[in-house]
Simulated assay, not measured.
Amino acid sequence: MSKIAVMGDYDSIYGFASVGLETIPVTLPMEAAEILKRLKDERYAVIYITEVLASQLEEEIEKMKEEPVPAVILIPGTYGDTGKGIEDIKKSVEKAVGSDILSGDETKAGDGQK
């Protein structure tokens, strides 16, 4: 079975425990960087990180994106949504599909108008 963890401030992540995910409350960037490395070494398949915490770990997360595992997915926290998580998902989908199908800026078929 694949291991999944959720990292971030306690208020943002405690609900994930109810669906069986490992929750790791952390707010300090140095501590979070060490935990992120440990989770990678322990072969976690997916690591969810609150956007606020991820903004403090950009360098570490970018290095991890070069590897197929773990998938690092940004989630909004209780302290707000920076939009970075959805931006990353849109980039991944665009890379896989070849166009931005998630923008919501679709043209009507046949008439070239929005």
Score class of each variant (00 low, 15 high):
residue 56 Q to A: 12
residue 41 D to H: 14
residue 41 D to C: 14
residue 11 D to K: 06
residue 13 I to Y: 00
residue 114 K to P: 06
residue 112 G to Y: 09
residue 89 I to P: 08
residue 55 S to T: 13
residue 109 A to D: 07
residue 98 G to N: 09
residue 11 D to Q: 04
residue 80 G to H: 07
residue 77 G to R: 05
residue 1 M to W: 09
residue 48 Y to G: 05
residue 9 D to C: 04
residue 82 T to L: 14
residue 65 K to F: 06
residue 106 E to P: 07
residue 93 V to M: 10
residue 77 G to V: 04
residue 83 G to S: 08
residue 96 A to P: 04
residue 43 R to P: 00
residue 64 M to L: 15
residue 4 I to P: 00
residue 84 K to L: 13
residue 37 K to L: 11
residue 88 D to T: 07
residue 111 D to T: 13
residue 54 A to W: 00
residue 20 G to R: 05
residue 68 P to L: 04
residue 74 L to D: 01
residue 89 I to Q: 12
residue 89 I to F: 06
residue 37 K to N: 15
residue 19 V to P: 01
residue 55 S to H: 15
residue 68 P to I: 05
residue 100 D to S: 10
residue 7 M to A: 08
residue 36 L to C: 10
residue 65 K to I: 00
residue 99 S to Q: 12
residue 33 A to W: 00
residue 55 S to C: 14
residue 68 P to T: 06
residue 27 T to P: 01
residue 7 M to Y: 04
residue 26 V to P: 01
residue 112 G to F: 14
residue 40 K to I: 12
residue 76 P to Y: 04
residue 55 S to W: 02
residue 76 P to Q: 08
residue 59 E to D: 10
residue 25 P to M: 07
residue 34 E to G: 08
residue 97 V to Q: 01
residue 87 E to M: 10
residue 5 A to E: 00
residue 16 F to H: 02
residue 16 F to W: 06
residue 1 M to G: 13
residue 68 P to W: 06
residue 73 I to T: 08
residue 95 K to G: 10
residue 43 R to F: 14
residue 23 T to I: 14
residue 92 S to K: 14
residue 34 E to H: 14
residue 110 G to C: 03
residue 40 K to P: 02
residue 108 K to N: 11
residue 56 Q to L: 14
residue 48 Y to D: 03
residue 6 V to Q: 03
residue 74 L to S: 12
residue 96 A to Y: 13
residue 72 V to E: 03
